[in-house]
Simulated assay, not measured.
Amino acid sequence: MPFIQLFLMFFRIGIFSFGGGYAMLPLIFQGVQEFGIMTSAEFSRLVALSQVTPGPIAVNAATYVGFQYTGFFGAFAATFGVALPSVILVILTMHFMKKFQESKGLEAVLFGIRPATVGLIASAVIFLSENSLFQGPLFSKELIENIKEYVNLLPCILFICTIILAGKFRIGPIKLTILAGLVGAFLIR
């Protein structure tokens, strides 16, 4: 029975998430909380692990969650569940592409989906910030009152450096991920 629950949870996530893996993260976290599989800190580590392993972040996260919950078959059920909607939607899209290529209705739907996708990605950024840069919920009175005790300085510096190196110097994400991992490994020991 847990395999069916995992499959259905990730199928739902796969079919209702637009915008890729980062847009799926809040939904995956919500599902993980429903199952009671892992804490916020563990989920934050899962996201980091999903980033450094090859493949789409949503598939990596689903595989990890499924494996944590029920082992190999849970990993298979979760991965199949999150990937199947994309396969179905691509097949259907290709079938109807020519018919609806210049449809005003389709343009209107996509116009509405785009800002929601940005919102979901922003939600993932806030979630990851809470668990990576700060030691508790973002936007709380505690943050303002106890800023020195609340902010993790090293992750904030890494965050700012990553933005500068990626934006200004166009250093690729793989190099930045490896560099950040090395900095963390040497400075946090």
Rank of each mutant, 00 (worst) to 15 (best):
A62F: 01
F76H: 01
N146V: 11
F96Y: 05
F73V: 03
Y150H: 15
V82W: 01
L6W: 04
F67M: 05
A58Y: 09
T70W: 06
I147T: 13
G31C: 08
F43W: 00
M1A: 15
L133R: 00
G112D: 00
L6V: 07
R12D: 14
A23C: 12
E42P: 12
R189P: 14
G31Y: 02
T162A: 11
L25C: 13
L120W: 08
L128V: 05
I174N: 04
L89W: 14
F29T: 03
Q68W: 04
Q51E: 11
L84S: 08
P137R: 12
F139Y: 09
L106D: 03
F159T: 01
H95C: 08
L8N: 05
F29A: 03
R114Y: 08
A185V: 07
P115G: 13
G136N: 08
P2H: 11
F139G: 12
K104Y: 08
M1T: 06
G19M: 04
E42R: 00
L143I: 06
R45V: 00
V151Y: 06
I144M: 14
T93S: 03
L27T: 02
Y69V: 10
F73M: 08
L133P: 04
Q101A: 15
L106G: 15
A48H: 01
L25T: 06
C161M: 09
I160G: 12
I28P: 07
L110W: 07
L8Q: 06
A185R: 04
V32L: 06
V109W: 13
N152W: 05
L138F: 11
Y22A: 09
T117W: 00
I160A: 15
G71Y: 05
F11G: 09
K168V: 13
M9D: 15
A61M: 02
C156R: 05
L158N: 00
M1L: 07
N152A: 15
G20N: 09
S103M: 02
I126T: 08
S132Y: 00
F11K: 04
S44Q: 04
A185Y: 13
P26E: 01
I91H: 11
K168G: 13
G81L: 03
K98A: 15
N146M: 13
G14N: 00
F96C: 05
Y69L: 05
P2A: 11
Y64C: 01
N60L: 08
G81E: 00
F3L: 13
A116T: 09
V87Q: 00
A185P: 14
N131H: 10
M94Y: 15
Y64I: 00
I163N: 14
L158C: 04
R12T: 14
